[in-house]
Computed example of a mutant assay.
Amino acid sequence: MKHLRLISIFICMGILFLGFSTKYFEVDAELTNTASASKTGKDPLTIELESFSQEHHIPAVDAKVDRVWKAIPGYNGLEVDIEASHKIMKANGKMDKSKVVYKETSPAVHLEDLGPHPIFKGNPDKPMVAFLINVAWGNEFIPEILDVLKENKTKVSFFFDGSWVRNNPDLAKMIFKDGHEIGNHAYSHPDLQRKSEVETSEELKRTNDIISKTLGIESPKWFGPPSGSFNQQTVEVASQLGMHTVLWTVDTVDWKKPATSVMVNRVVTQVENGSMILMHPTKPVAEGIGAMITQITEQGYRLGTVSELMSEKRVIIKKDGPVPPLSQ
């Protein structure tokens, strides 16, 4: 019994010491912050916010020319907005992580700084994917594809063949009216590797002119070479006309008429940050685009246009459940 009493006494003393120590260290931390504040002229809350900012800073990623993927856009960084956070917390003067305000920081090098290079994908740090739909035929499947995109609140980038726009102005207007991005796909689906600079320029200019006239918009920002046929001359001509040349990361190969489930599975298993997925208005795409949207968002990616993918703006991803499209 005597031993049990001694043990109880020691336990009580330990608990008291622990409580005292914890309180001591809390007070010591406050004194340290106060001392730092007196030296720097900053209040303790500002010092805490600055320390928190250093621990949670995400640096911006510069645009670059990759050996394999060519031009890669930059991606904004993230840091604590100390002034805005301080204004929210100054009422009680205490640090509250749930009230921290963040702001994006811009890269030092931008896509426009790289010069004329083809683009195959977005920034690999950006959890986002874009659909590229090249249109030169397949009119019968366009309404169904548009219905699925509307139902899923998803915006994509359509690349128009100029002669197709001339012959199908109402369909072109329908696509544009639904809020999708419009790109240039040359005028007559040429093999641009075999075209001269003058011929290439004429193909792209005629397409921009018919798109602008039909839809009442400025010239497209993005150019998609027909059949992926291009060379450096093609890229430079597009650049002179104010357009970036974009290709793709993942190909549906829908023109080969694969089984829809096979096509969907092949695409969604290849998707990664920054992927651009090429497709056409075909039966497999009309049947499978809804499944692709669902499965890609369930993997944690946002879907959007080429402009949204190439933007340096950060994408915030939910931790639970499917990710809504960026255009929602």
Rank of each mutant, 00 (worst) to 15 (best):
M128F: 11
E199P: 06
I211D: 04
M243N: 06
D113H: 05
K39Y: 14
S201I: 11
T105K: 05
V65N: 03
N92C: 12
D81M: 04
W255E: 00
M243R: 06
G183M: 00
N273I: 06
Q232T: 00
E140T: 05
P124T: 10
H117T: 06
I210C: 01
M1G: 13
F10Y: 07
K173M: 03
W69V: 13
N168L: 00
E312L: 10
L326A: 15
G138K: 06
R194D: 00
K173R: 09
S275I: 02
I142P: 03
E50G: 00
A108P: 09
I9R: 06
F176I: 01
Q295W: 08
V109D: 03
A130M: 06
R166I: 06
S163V: 14
N167T: 13
M292T: 07
D161Y: 02
Y102N: 00
V65A: 10
D125M: 04
K313R: 01
K318T: 15
K319L: 06
E199V: 03
G138S: 04
K318H: 10
A136K: 13
P127N: 10
A136R: 08
F158A: 08
D147W: 09
V80G: 15
H86G: 03
D147M: 13
L6I: 15
V61Y: 09
P127C: 12
R5W: 11
N167L: 08
F230P: 00
P143V: 06
G19L: 14
G274Y: 00
N134W: 05
K121D: 04
E140K: 14
G300F: 01
E50D: 03
L303M: 14
F158C: 00
S219W: 07
L247M: 14
L78F: 07
K319G: 09
I142E: 08
K150E: 13
I296E: 09
D254H: 03
G179W: 01
K155C: 13
G304K: 02
V198E: 14
E298V: 11
N167I: 07
K313Y: 06
M1K: 11
D43I: 08
E26L: 13
I317D: 10
S219Y: 12
K103L: 02
T200E: 01
T207Q: 14
I82K: 05
S51F: 06
E287H: 15
D170P: 12
D320T: 05
A108T: 05
V101A: 08
P107E: 03
D81W: 08
